[in-house]
């Protein structure tokens, strides 16, 4: 999904060798630095762990719960994106139980808003759609909710369609952590939660938005898009993110 071999923000460059942890993922041995997460190690070694809220280069929030894995000795499932490795850790990234939970979580996301892939600008380039297929989903067995959600097209270049938002908060984080503008945030609770620009102002009226478009490109679905794209035409470009992170860290 996203490029590999990038240092996470906040992680220090190579540690002395004595600080290496060895662990097992799906029965194979790996070594890692102590500040690395299970997901870091999995990614470096091309082991697939489903995820939606996580995006390399942004802070991790552990919100989508797709990356939950089994760790021997823990009676809880642990989110791979935020769980640090430790010596002797034994991780299982897939099992019938995990697969069932992951499918249900994806299903819940599809029921929550109105995801009509066939008419979406991101059809074919969507992380949610891709993940659903990857996890073997052919239908959603929970009933759909059909909320009335809005489209804010007031910005001159971008659109947000709340019908397609999965509340991963990648836009919130990229705007705050990378662009430094903090235009986006979440308002409301529970099923009524939604992302807003400024203090729930129309995006076009935002005084903080720099129109950089980072939010559009980190958005996993067609919720955020550039104007002027028809169905399936909105391809997201995320190469800037690891690049910015790397540059920033090299300056620190």
């Amino acid at each position: 999904m996203s490029p590999t071999n990038v240092v996470k923000p906040g992680t220090k460059p190579v540690q002395p060798a004595s600080n290496v942890k060895t662990l097992q993922i799906d029965g194979k041995d790996f070594s890692a630095r102590p500040e690395e997460t299970i997901l870091d190690v999995a990614r470096q070694n091309k082991i697939f762990i489903p995820r939606l809220c996580e995006l390399e280069g942004l802070s991790d929030v552990g919100a989508c719960r797709l990356c939950l894995v089994e760790v021997k000795g823990s009676n809880k499932l642990l989110p791979a994106c935020v769980t640090r490795v430790y010596e002797g850790m034994e991780v299982t990234t897939n099992s019938p139980r995990l697969a069932a939970y992951r499918r249900m979580i994806i299903e819940l996301l599809f029921t929550e808003r109105n995801h009509i892939c066939s008419v979406c600008v991101s059809n074919g380039h969507c992380d949610l759609q891709w993940m659903a297929q990857k996890l073997g989903l052919t239908h959603v067995h929970f009933p759909y909710r059909y909320p009335k959600a809005n489209v804010d097209a007031s910005h001159e270049r971008f659109v947000i369609d709340h019908n397609r938002c999965i509340l991963c908060t990648r836009c919130v984080r990229v705007c705050d952590e990378i662009e430094g503008a903090h235009v986006w945030d979440v308002m409301g609770r529970g099923i009524d939660a939604k992302v807003v620009t400024d203090l729930n102002e129309a995006w076009g009226n935002s005084e903080t938005c720099t129109s950089c478009g980072k939010c559009v490109h980190v958005c996993p679905t067609g919720a955020l898009s550039e104007k002027g794209h028809a169905v399936a035409e909105m391809e997201k470009r995320r190469h800037f993110l690891p690049y910015l992170t790397m540059m920033r860290e090299s300056q620190e």
């Binding site: 919100a63 819940l108 996301l109 929550e112 509340l167 099923i191």
Partner: peptide, 12 residues
């Protein structure tokens, strides 16, 4: 409303 299972699961 942060995590999916609780946000949508409690609704369902």
């Amino acid at each position: 409303g942060k995590c999916v299972p609780c946000r949508v699961g409690t609704y369902q």
